Simulated scan of single mutants.
Amino acid sequence: MAIDKLAHYSIRTTDLEASRVFYTEILGFRVGYRPPFDFPGIWLYMGEDEREYGTVHIIGIDPNNPEGLIKYLGDKSLDSLKGTGSVDHIAFNATGLAEMRQKLTSRGMAIRERTVPSLNLHQVFLEDPSGVTIELNYPAAEAV
């Protein structure tokens, strides 16, 4: 038995729309097919191919009807739904650092940057609306 690759990651949120905006308008994902679960949510894709079921699954929490989510994934307290918990961050490879900096600056988003010299890699760290840390990895040459 071999594990091939990361299939997706899921985030529970009380603000589905803020997460949609972040992942589509900031990171450039696309909302795509999602099965008709008995709880709100969206599946986000990096491209047009939907055969791999999306990269990010945003799980909406409906405080007026939590039963569908509880039955499917179990219950979690709302207090536990901020940040990455034991997972430190989620990373993506990217290009177009100047454009991303402009986009983030124009929206007043806080970022941290650093270059890993031995890897020729420039990293940008930011947080999604749920406080999950996202790392964007660019070629270091773009950081000039």
Rank of each mutant, 00 (worst) to 15 (best):
W43I: 08
Q102I: 06
M1E: 15
E127Q: 12
P129G: 01
D49K: 08
I11S: 02
K76Y: 11
N137W: 04
T95K: 14
P40F: 01
E142V: 00
E67W: 12
I70T: 14
S130E: 09
D79G: 14
K5A: 13
I90C: 11
M1P: 12
G83C: 06
A91D: 10
S80A: 13
E17M: 09
A94F: 12
L44M: 07
T95G: 09
H8L: 04
Y53G: 13
I59H: 00
I70F: 11
Q123E: 09
P35Q: 09
L97M: 05
T84G: 15
I90G: 06
S80D: 14
V116H: 09
F39S: 01
S106M: 09
G96L: 04
D128G: 02
R20Y: 06
I3L: 15
L81D: 02
I134H: 00
A7G: 15
P40L: 01
S86W: 11
V116R: 10
L6Y: 11
S77K: 13
T133N: 04
L136W: 00
E135A: 05
A98Q: 08
E135Q: 08
L44R: 00
T55L: 11
A110V: 15
Y45C: 05
I59P: 00
T14S: 13
K71Q: 14
H89Y: 10
T55Q: 14
F39Y: 10
P63V: 10
L136E: 00
G85Q: 05
Y138H: 06
S77N: 09
T14K: 12
R51P: 07
M100W: 05
Y72F: 13
H57V: 03
N64D: 13
G68L: 07
V132P: 01
T55Y: 08
E25L: 10
F29E: 02
T24D: 05
T115E: 12
P36S: 06
E135N: 04
V144Y: 10
M100D: 06
T115P: 03
T14W: 08
M1H: 14
L119V: 11
D79Y: 13
F92V: 11
E17H: 11
D38I: 03
I42K: 03
I26R: 05
G74W: 03
W43G: 02
G74I: 03
A141G: 07
D88R: 12
R107D: 06
Q102D: 10
A2M: 14
N120L: 12
Y33K: 08
R114E: 13
I70H: 10
Q102E: 13
I59V: 10
P66V: 06
T115W: 08
M100N: 04
I59R: 00
E17L: 10
G32V: 01
L69A: 04
E135C: 03
E17Q: 15
R30H: 12
P40M: 03
P117R: 10
N64W: 11
D62V: 05
L121E: 06
P35L: 08
P66L: 08
